[in-house]
Design a protein around this nucleic acid. Structure first.
Lengths: 199, 199
DNA sequence: GCTTAATCTTTACAGCGTTAGGATTGTGCC
DNA sequence: GGCACAATCCTAACGCTGTAAAGATTAAGC
């Protein structure tokens, strides 16, 4: 059967199509991954014809970009809100970072380049998030290290949580242990290391 | 003009089409990235019609998979060959790891999931590479740490080089410094940290 | 209430991965 | 050498995609 617009819609105009498209795109993203983010698939879910999306986004990639923009703000907010768990973790922001990645795997991959290289370049919010991530990792260490060591140490911590998060959501860490324990122990190792690893 | 097969080929049969396709695919991969890995684009470069690829690969994804297989063996070889630079680096295999990632950015992204999720699952060589990467990172530390600490410390080092490599090839490290210096200093920080960070 | 602009529609086009079936060439047996 | 066969390549075509063009429907402003 040929796909046709949703007849069950009350009015000819949708009213809030832009956000409806973004929401459907978010669903597709988490359900099937970045490579399945198709314009036609998205508009089908909303119950609207494909070209109607062009009144709200200039291209399919722009939808992915809008998604990444929204996700970037979400993640930045989540990180700067600060982790409420203060059980003596040495890198609490690091744990919050990995937790967000694990909670939003496809979104994170989207923001960090997978499938849509344009996202990394053209999204202001995503660029801000990346800068902020680095800053946050530095801030996580600044009461423990001198200003001279901070740039490299911050990069060290950022790369660590970035890599750890990606390995986790790619299912490539196959020890039998609980993932949260693993994250904690790795960050603890990094933390104690940083405390003694002055140059 | 409609695209037509390469008339300048000597014989009707290509002779080594399978490898020619893989080589062209590798070129496309490095030139334009994983998302541009199209079957038609690849066969166009070889000067052959698109469906002829189906005599050597069951699908387009299978070409990407073959590419990843080959790349995985290449990387494993490069890593186990061992770094010849012995200038006292604390994590020589770590530096070799990041160096390979920087030299083959798109290939590395392909092997670790971007665009072709099937690659991570179905490629034997890629699975082997990932296991091996972890083992190599552990071996990099085994004369410095006890057996009990090795699993977490190996994961720590692997996640670090994985994340650092990805951040570098994504162009998200924008300090003015030389990238190689940065890698060295980050790994040095990790190394000295590990030396003192016994639990 | 009419005009205008915004929103959604159908229709159409080129490019994609893939299938089906015909043309051409290398291979092994007589 | 010649012939049957299998392997390899081709063109044609299908359904899918993102996108452009142009017509239908509705909301907004005077």
């Amino acid at each position: 059967m040929p796909t046709r617009p949703n007849k069950s819609r009350k009015s000819y105009h949708h009213g809030d199509l832009r956000n409806a498209l973004l929401k459907a795109a978010r669903d597709v993203l988490e359900e099937r991954g970045p490579s399945f983010l198709g314009l036609r698939e998205i508009s089908r879910r909303v119950g609207v014809s494909a070209p109607s999306a062009y009144h709200h986004f200039p291209s399919r990639d722009a939808i992915a970009l809008g998604l990444a923009e929204h996700g970037a703000r979400e993640m930045a907010e989540c990180l700067t809100a600060g982790p409420r768990d203060e059980t003596g973790a040495l890198a609490p922001y690091g744990e919050a970072y990995v937790a967000f990645v694990r909670a939003n795997p496809a979104l994170y991959r989207l923001m960090f380049g997978e499938g849509f290289p344009a996202v990394s370049q053209y999204s202001h919010a995503v660029r801000e998030l990346r800068k902020r991530s680095y800053e946050i990792m530095k801030s996580n260490l600044e009461n423990r290290l001198s200003d001279a060591e901070l740039p490299i140490a911050g990069l060290f911590l950022w790369a660590l949580v970035h890599g750890l998060g990606l390995l986790l959501i790619d299912g490539q860490i196959t020890t039998g242990e609980d993932d949260r324990d693993i994250v904690h122990r790795v960050l603890q190792l990094a933390g104690t290391g940083l405390d003694h690893g002055r140059t």
